[in-house]
Amino acid sequence: MLKSAGLHPYTKLKIVKFFYHHYLNLFFFIFLLFLAILEVGVSVKCDIYRAIEALSSVLFMTLTLFRYVVNYRNKPSLAWLLEKRSNFWLLEHFEGQIRTDCAKIMHTSSNFIRNYKNYAIVLAAVFYVQPFIFHELQMKIYVPEGWFYYLYLVYWYMTPPLFVSVYGVTSMFCAICIPVTIQFKLLAHRIQNLDFKSEKFQRDLKHLVDYHNFLIDYCTRINRYSNGVLLFEFFITISVCCILIFIAANDYPFVDKIKYAGFIVSQFLDTAIFCYNCELISDASENVGKAAYDSLWYESESKIRRSLILIIVRAQKKVTFSGYGLVRINMMTFTQVFKATLSFTSYLNTVTVDEKMLNN
């Protein structure tokens, strides 16, 4: 998906590089965002509900533009993350329950990413045909007289960058995080089953400590690659879903309610994927320290025990993800996003009801 819009570091398709040039994409992103902002200004005095719809278009275009720019700039970071995955331990080298558990996680996540990609393709197809079915553009923007079909062509051209900037980036984040979660589980398994009486123990312990440091550094790089998206995701999800729930709950055509309900589900699902994967890695990294504590450390020498204590202390500081250190991303954050969205929506509905009563 990322390769189709030029956001993958290993994009080699010449047709993609020709049609989806970075500066051309930026121009159309900013152009559509400008028209959406213009529609808000034009509609706010005559049709407040249309202005609210246009405001949701502004927020959506801002989200996709920001994601596109951040991920285009971070292509070298993504290349590093993909390259260093060659250092991961292979699941085939493990036996028993740990291999079964990790294989199940990998299989489930692969199916989820595949279904999520298919879901995005279906939405993109609906996005393409919407003007033919409903005789209006995909999002509420200002349409100068005689510009409808020209703007439809612009949307047709921008559909791959729009959807890849949202669904492709989210899928890539999931595909990066799941293997790291599995690597922490494998590391915990090896630490817990260390043979303290083996002649190779010192060498094995050093290798495990080095690998633990490598995984922590890898997670730091993941956060550096995605912290801009994570921060923006937090605020935009609250804003977009608040407006869309308000639209779906008021006197709008049923078709619009169905369309915006789909956007609401998509946006919440998108945020949940980020939060859930960050939570998985945090829990798996913390379990490394628990595995060291549950090992047969009491059978080792005092010098070795001090090394294990360092592993436990290092693992007690959970790997966490945040948006530039301002917003910590985990499942608690997703709960806060959901609560904040409902609170703001309730406030908007209250203000609207009071305004209608005053007008009457």
Rank of each mutant, 00 (worst) to 15 (best):
D210I: 02
L78P: 01
I121W: 11
R50H: 09
V265P: 00
A248G: 08
F246D: 03
L215C: 06
L186M: 09
F134I: 05
T108E: 13
C242F: 11
V129H: 00
T220A: 11
A124P: 00
F31E: 06
V229S: 07
N287W: 07
I247A: 02
T271G: 05
L65N: 04
I216P: 00
Y128D: 04
A284K: 05
L187A: 05
W80E: 12
L186V: 07
F196V: 00
F234T: 07
R50I: 05
K140Q: 14
L194C: 01
T220S: 13
L151N: 07
V313E: 13
Y49N: 12
K117R: 13
Y119N: 08
T237G: 05
P131N: 08
Y116A: 07
K117S: 15
I273G: 00
V154R: 05
E95D: 13
G6H: 09
I236F: 11
F163I: 11
F338T: 14
S343I: 06
M158N: 03
V44K: 05
S43Y: 03
A248Q: 02
E83D: 12
S295T: 05
Q267I: 10
Q97S: 13
Q267Y: 08
L59P: 00
L65A: 11
S266Y: 08
S109K: 03
F234P: 02
E299R: 04
G96K: 12
V353D: 14
S282Y: 08
K356L: 14
L194N: 02
K303L: 01
C174E: 09
N74K: 13
T181D: 14
G262H: 09
H8A: 13
T352S: 14
I273C: 07
A125S: 14
A272P: 00
A291E: 03
V255L: 10
G6W: 07
C275Q: 03
F268L: 14
S282N: 09
Y347Q: 03
S4V: 12
L32R: 04
K84H: 15
D251P: 01
L137H: 09
V353F: 12
N359T: 15
V69A: 06
N118L: 15
Q316F: 10
I264G: 08
L32S: 07
G323F: 03
T333G: 02
K75N: 01
L63N: 08
F132P: 01
N25V: 15
S171N: 13
A36Q: 10
S109M: 04
H212V: 02
V351M: 14
P160A: 03
R203I: 13
K197E: 05
M331D: 07
I245C: 09
S57L: 03
L280Q: 15
L230P: 02
N349G: 11
Y23P: 02
T352I: 04
K75A: 00
H207D: 13
Q183W: 07
S4R: 11
S307E: 11
G41K: 05
H22V: 09
I222L: 10
G325D: 06
V129W: 08
D217F: 08
C219L: 00
L63I: 06
F60E: 04
A54D: 04
